[in-house]
């Protein structure tokens, strides 16, 4: 039994309505930091960062069917790459992003090679092992010179470029948003075309896909690499936003919450990453407001409810709910005497 469902990927054709929606969303997102407090802006920055990560994980898990319980590791590698470059070599923050992406692509690609031989639960174990081992490796004595060991690395928050009347938080948010928009555009381009179809074909009918001439190993390892790249860039942005990295920031639960994020958001969708990111950032806080005694119990209960109400995730449910509403309205209109 495959670990993943055969979900047809969400439609990605550039229709007029969809384009309008994206433009509207972007416009709202651009205005938000000027309406909200710095704290809220910072929170949104984190949500945008997680959206990038979830998009990356969705490419691998949603589209290509390779489950990963270890993306926290790539997030950590991206974050540490950025932190070390800034801290030791004074590299400007924006220049650390391509570096983090490249490093993570290599790690992801390399990890994707043995992953080719592992399927389903075995891949889940392998990736989870990666997540579990990450803090231990970051703490390792021989790497301490670079990683700062258990104490981690503190980095500086970037200022807005001279002349722009923006606070640090506003600037960081807009910068993050721009990077995210770019990455979303790239992913959309990738997934709606030949590559996207190949990934899905490999997920659902691996043998048939290969016999049609799709190079399975190459696609799968590359999917791992690209997915890690997204996650790594997210990690670098996260490090810059939080100004701190330490082994304890990257415990296994982080990887699990990424997986929760894409499932709640919607597997094999692009927009699901946004919903999932909102979930990751805001749900723990709500849970905390409801109960100090057992916030995780609240978190788990809400998770259960969401999974029951929307088994495919928010991104799959919303269009259906919307269609349902439209039908209701139409049928009500149609029942009128004039019709």
């Amino acid at each position: 039994m495959p670990l993943l469902p055969k979900i047809a990927p969400a439609p990605l054709e550039p229709t007029l309505g969809r384009a309008a929606m994206v433009v509207l969303l972007l416009a709202v997102l651009c205005v938000l930091p000027f309406v909200l407090s710095d704290y809220r802006t910072f929170q949104l920055t984190q949500a945008v960062i997680y959206a990038v990560v979830l998009l990356g994980l969705n490419i691998l898990t949603g589209y290509n069917g390779q489950i990963s319980l270890g993306h926290g590791a790539f997030f950590a590698i991206g974050a540490y790459t950025a932190a070390i470059l800034m801290d030791r070599w004074g590299v400007p923050y924006w220049a650390t992003l391509p570096a983090a992406g490249a490093v993570c692509f290599c790690f992801g690609f390399a990890f994707g090679l043995p992953a080719l031989r592992l399927q389903g639960h075995y891949l889940a174990l392998a990736t989870f092992a990666l997540a579990v081992a990450t803090p231990q490796i970051l703490k390792y004595r021989k790497l301490e010179d670079f990683t700062g060991g258990v104490q981690g690395i503190v980095i500086m928050k970037p200022d807005a470029p001279a002349g722009l009347p923006l606070s640090q938080d506003q600037w960081l948010y807009l910068f993050t948003l721009a990077v995210a928009a770019l990455l979303f555009l790239a992913a959309w381009n990738l997934l709606r075309g030949r590559v996207g179809r190949a990934l899905v074909a490999l997920r659902d009918h691996p043998l048939a896909a290969e016999s049609m001439g799709i190079n399975g190993s190459l696609y799968k390892t590359t999917a791992f690499g690209v997915s890690a790249l997204y996650t790594g860039v997210g990690g670098a942005l996260g490090a810059i936003a939080v100004q701190f990295v330490a082994p304890d920031s990257f415990l296994p639960f982080l990887s699990i919450s990424f997986l929760v994020g894409i499932t709640v958001g919607g597997l094999a969708t692009v927009s699901g990453a946004l919903w999932g990111a909102l979930f990751i950032v805001y749900l723990p806080n709500w849970a905390d407001e409801i109960s100090k005694s057992a916030p995780w119990a609240i978190y788990g209960a809400i998770l259960l409810v969401l999974v029951y109400l929307m088994p495919g995730g928010v991104a799959w449910m919303l269009p259906r709910a919307w269609a349902l509403v439209l039908r209701r309205i139409r049928s009500r209109g149609g029942a009128g005497p004039g019709a």
Binding site: P2, L4, P5, W296
Partner: peptide
Amino acid sequence: VEKAPVLTVVITFIALLVIFNSV
């Protein structure tokens, strides 16, 4: 969630895990 994607079932397990731990 029997008929839901297997990952959804996995998420159910994770929810159970945190609930039991927390309670």
